[in-house]
């Protein structure tokens, strides 16, 4: 996983709430068996619209998405995170995220940043006024800044540390493999098994 410490870049204001994972990437784009190449499905239903924010020149190279509340609700498809990353996004700012999306994003190194609704609206207005405005997302200090303003955001220490180190969860867990094995010996015999004859 790519590490995340501090990122500065242009941002795209997505003035919509409840952008569910079916909007981020429709099901028909989920058929690939690789982790890459999902950018073409990103916001597919909206991409034909010349006014869609990512179609405006000023926002074409955005690396930060500033979206409305309940971003990423819906399905568990991690393809939503992969599509955003594949397109070039490093962070998404929104008042609230769907839980599974947020978890997937943290696993994949796309930083989900929660700011208050009013602050998100301030960013939207600022980006509309000046599309070249750069936003800095600083995971080390857990702060976001843009122009003269800056805000703190919450993220638990463990997730922050994993992102900053770019650590793989499986490796971390396997340090405790002996505990997993010990747990397994204690499980009741009657619990179901999917394979016959065991």
């Amino acid at each position: 996983m790519e590490t995340f410490t501090v990122h500065t870049g242009r941002a795209a204001p997505l003035r919509r709430s409840n952008v569910d994972t079916d909007q981020i990437i429709p099901a028909v784009y989920l058929k690939r068996v690789t982790r890459t190449g999902f950018a073409d499905g990103l916001f597919a239903a909206w991409r034909d619209d010349p006014d869609f924010v990512l179609n405006r020149n000023a926002h074409a190279d955005s690396t930060i998405l500033v979206a409305g509340t309940e971003f990423g609700t819906g399905s568990s498809r991690e393809h939503a995170v992969w599509a955003l990353q594949d397109y070039g996004f490093r962070a998404v700012i929104a008042p609230r995220f769907g839980d599974i999306f947020r978890g997937n994003a943290l696993k994949g190194g796309l930083l989900p940043v929660e700011l208050d609704q009013a602050d998100v609206e301030w960013l939207w207005d600022a980006l509309d006024a000046d599309p070249t405005l750069e936003i800095t997302v600083d995971l080390v200090r857990r702060r976001v800044s843009a122009g003269e303003r800056d805000w703190g955001f919450a993220l638990d220490d463990h997730s922050r540390w994993r992102l900053m180190e770019g650590l793989d969860d499986i490796d971390l867990t396997l340090r405790d493999e002996s505990q997993i094995t010990a747990f397994e010996t204690e499980r009741p015999q009657w619990l179901p098994r999917t394979l016959q004859g065991r």
């Binding site: 399905s75 991690e78 599974i100 978890g103 997937n104 696993k107 499986i170 971390l172 867990t173 397994e184």
Partner: peptide, 20 residues
Amino acid sequence: FGIGTSEVEHVLATQTLPQQ
């Protein structure tokens, strides 16, 4: 509960999942 693909891999490999 539902999980993403990275977590699917984690469960396949370890039969566990780190969860808040």
